[in-house]
């Protein structure tokens, strides 16, 4: 059993909040472009904001808008968004042992689920840090995403080409920074490369949105790799590292900076 630690050191909490604000700012930059793109693809400001408030899935929303902009109909746009939303099912599964949400918190926990909140939570070493990172990142990102959606939608045509500012790359760069700690593990590296290649390889043959879901299936490939033998934990109690229900991938691959998050690299580690 994992010792339940409800108290995180104040310093650790401050660091997690700072990380969350960093993620929020990055997401905000993308929210601006989503708002502007959505309006230019034919959605009303109300519909644009509704999606940010209630669908709340950055890439699902952007895929929806992208499908509309490319001439797809409502059904295709809706289906693409749902397909991109499929990954939250898997995010939920990997968060389940970490988050341990009480029934009262289940609906808000589900609503705040995003790439960012998941990535920040699973990068943490203890369940209590993961939970705190999840809620604070989820809330901050939700707030920034919605505020910037509104600003972007209202600014409309002024920001209609987010490419001029390189905002289309900002999202990829953010995802790269978020996934980086997982690339220190062999399983993570293997799946990262395989999934990235598969997604690009199938792109010419399937509709927008599908390559990401298909690439998600490459996660199964880790079963072909031999299991990593447990390593020495550098004097730490291994029970502190693995949450109940044991996500095998949460065992750090090395002792160097294993506690780093993508967003916390500037910290004292």
């Amino acid at each position: 059993m994992v010792q339940e630690q409800d108290q995180l050191p104040r310093k650790e909490k401050a660091r997690l909040v700072r990380d969350a604000l960093g993620v929020g700012l990055a997401v905000g930059a993308y929210g601006l472009s989503y708002g502007a793109l959505a309006v230019s693809s034919g959605l009303s400001v109300g519909q644009t904001q509704f999606l940010s408030l209630l669908l709340y899935g950055g890439s699902a929303q952007l895929a929806l808008v992208g499908t509309l902009a490319a001439g797809g109909g409502g059904a295709a746009a809706s289906a693409t968004a749902t397909l991109l939303g499929v990954r939250s099912l898997f995010y939920g599964v990997s968060l389940r042992p970490v988050l341990d949400a009480r029934p009262r918190l289940l609906l808000p926990a589900a609503h705040l689920l995003s790439d960012e909140s998941t990535a920040m939570a699973i990068a943490k070493q203890t369940p209590s840090a993961s939970r705190f990172a999840y809620w604070v990142t989820g809330s901050v990102v939700f707030l920034f995403w919605n505020l910037t959606t509104l600003v972007g939608a209202l600014a409309g045509s002024l920001l209609a080409d987010p490419k001029v500012l390189g905002l289309d790359v900002a999202s990829s760069a953010a995802f790269l920074a978020l996934v980086a700690p997982r690339l220190r593990e062999r399983d993570g590296r293997f799946v990262f490369v395989l999934a990235g290649l598969v997604a690009v390889a199938v792109s010419p043959f399937v509709g927008s949105g599908l390559p990401v879901v298909i690439a998600g299936l490459t996660a199964l490939s880790v079963l072909l790799l031999p299991t990593v033998r447990p390593r020495q934990q550098d004097g730490r109690n291994p029970n502190d590292e693995v949450p109940e229900g044991g996500l095998a991938d949460r065992v750090p691959a090395d002792g160097l900076g294993a506690g780093d998050s993508a967003a916390g690299r500037g910290g004292a580690s």
Partner: peptide, 8 residues
């Protein structure tokens, strides 16, 4: 555990 890595 690696599904988010694959999707990202």
């Amino acid at each position: 555990g690696v599904v988010p890595v694959a999707l990202l």
